[in-house]
């Protein structure tokens, strides 16, 4: 029995091997040859891994784009042109609520990923819904803040500081908006087609996207709000 099992593993044929791929080139190599370590051993990675990796690269380039906005904000934060600065404009209680909402949505998004891994459709949908709703409340608060600032005459046209502020925070808000749309799309796809491999990959990418948004928000509330509102 154990000999047969060894043959089974070493040869890579039989139940787990895909037809026409006796050496399991497309499946991370044979089990007898050790594990592929990301250094080119063991043949091409599976589609799930290449998709996740590709999306990770996209997220990193998205973060690099954000770094441009952060750099602009850091350079222009003092250029208020006689207008209001961060200390007068920012309301930390609202920012704290926004931060809590986004952090909590990141958490529920992760719980959704766990439910997906357990192939539990109901809980995946519930956690996706909660994630989307939390994101939506976050967005409402942010739009409120923007409207209030513009109403006070502190719109993006007021000073270079405010242009940089609205560009940076607005860009993050735009990402959250896109994320909410994506969340709804994923719920609809799950509803109509269930846990297909392609949909699982998209869910993984959505989770990555949502967590990355939260990471950007950490930099944002620290550098823009907390440092800007400093005494």
């Amino acid at each position: 029995m154990s000999g047969a099992a060894a043959q089974h593993r070493g040869g890579g044929q039989g139940g787990q091997g895909k037809g026409g791929d006796p050496y399991r080139l497309g499946h991370g190599g044979g089990h007898g040859h050790g594990e592929a370590t990301g250094r080119g051993d063991g043949g091409p990675a599976s589609k799930r891994i290449t998709t996740g990796y590709g999306f990770w690269i996209f997220l990193l380039s998205d973060i690099i784009m954000f770094s441009g906005f952060f750099a602009a904000y850091a350079v222009l934060r003092g250029e208020t042109a006689g207008g209001p600065g961060g200390a007068e404009l920012f309301e930390l209680p609202r920012v704290a609520i926004e931060t809590g909402l986004l952090l909590l949505s990141s958490f529920t998004c992760g719980l959704g990923a766990v439910a997906t891994e357990r192939r539990n459709l109901a809980w995946t949908q519930i956690w996706l819904l909660v994630t989307g709703l939390l994101g939506f409340i976050f967005l409402v608060l942010e739009v409120q803040e923007f409207a209030q600032m513009i109403g006070e005459g502190a719109g993006p046209a007021r000073s270079a500081f405010l242009s940089a502020f609205f560009a940076l925070v607005g860009c993050h808000g735009l990402h959250v908006g896109v994320g909410i749309l994506w969340c709804g799309t994923m719920m609809a796809q799950l509803w109509s087609r269930g846990f297909l491999p392609a949909i699982q990959r998209r869910l993984m990418c959505f989770n990555l996207f949502w967590h990355a948004l939260d990471i950007i928000w950490v930099a944002l509330f620290t550098i823009v709000y907390l440092m800007g509102a400093g005494r």
Partner: peptide
């Protein structure tokens, strides 16, 4: 063996729940 038999566990995609469960 268990990990191997589920296939595709040799590299991890970021955020992959299955790989880090």
């Amino acid at each position: 063996l268990e990990r191997g038999e589920r296939g595709e566990r040799h590299d991890s995609a970021p955020g992959d729940e299955a790989a880090s469960g």
